[in-house]
């Protein structure tokens, strides 16, 4: 099996200003030596409490953040140093209402990003219409994004994340704030991506969703890995994934 994501002893620290004046500085260990790998075609879950280090991990994988130490490879390339090889082939979606140009229509947003992903005119025309239909935005495609509901903005994000036909799609809490139909649509899209042989790495707080979707997952807590495997393996003798999750987090209390 080809491993498209390889993370080895990965660390990231932030230096945080603790006082307004003078140099009060505190080092936060956001990710503290985690290792895992993801095979091509897998749907992989990254679970954990708020502040566990999930977003930081995704940022390092998506070439947005430099690791403090450790190995972080995507498609065989170092995410810090060989990012040019990675960027055209991946994409990412951060949940919530950020990350779209609100003064542009959905179509214009997608047009702009398809230019930045260096797609040719012909490809653009083909992809944009298909994607708009896929996320069910076709009839509002020419209205300004600022007139959209929360869910529609999020679907636009998803559309943007698909614009370059990524081999790996990273999703950070993609279903947060989506209504039940929107969340189901997203799950369908994710499954469809798997059928096409694409890889998805996602974080979510909905454990049922994670169990339903993920082939494998890891649970991180305070920057460290506390469990990993298939949902069944993590569940062990617990009745639900949630029970197992709660137990793992409780056991890891400092």
């Amino acid at each position: 099996m080809e491993q498209v994501i390889e993370v080895q002893a990965l660390r990231r620290e932030y230096v945080r200003q603790t006082r307004l004046f003078r140099s009060g500085k505190k080092v936060v260990k956001a990710v503290d030596g985690i290792s895992f790998s993801v095979a091509r075609g897998e749907i992989f879950g990254l679970l954990g409490q708020n502040g566990a280090g999930k977003t930081t991990t995704i940022k390092m994988l998506t070439t947005l953040l430099a690791p403090s130490s450790g190995e972080c490879r995507v498609l065989g390339y170092r995410s810090f140093g060989e990012e040019k090889k990675i960027r055209p082939r991946i994409n990412f979606i951060f949940g919530g209402e950020m990350g779209v140009y609100r003064r542009l229509s959905a179509r214009d947003n997608l047009h702009y990003f398809s230019n930045l992903y260096l797609l040719s005119r012909a490809e653009q025309a083909k992809r944009i219409d298909a994607i708009l239909k896929l996320v069910d935005l076709a009839d509002r495609a020419d209205d300004l994004a600022e007139t959209y509901s929360k869910g529609m903005i999020q679907r636009l994000q998803i559309a943007r994340g698909l614009i370059n036909n990524p081999e790996i799609l990273f999703m950070d809490e993609p279903t947060v704030g989506l209504d039940p139909l929107g969340a189901r649509m997203l799950r369908d899209i994710i499954r469809r991506l798997r059928e096409e042989g694409r890889t998805v790495l996602l974080t979510t707080h909905y454990l049922a969703e994670a169990e339903e979707l993920c082939d494998r997952m890891v649970i991180i807590n305070r920057g460290k890995l506390v469990a990993g495997g298939t949902p069944a393996q993590i569940k062990g003798d617990c009745a639900t994934l949630e029970d197992a999750y709660v137990r793992l987090i409780e056991e890891d209390k400092p």
Partner: peptide, 18 residues
Amino acid sequence: YSGTLALIFATPASFPLI
């Protein structure tokens, strides 16, 4: 602040060109 800086930064287009 609108979260788009990270998005455009991570595209294959050269950031200085943008």
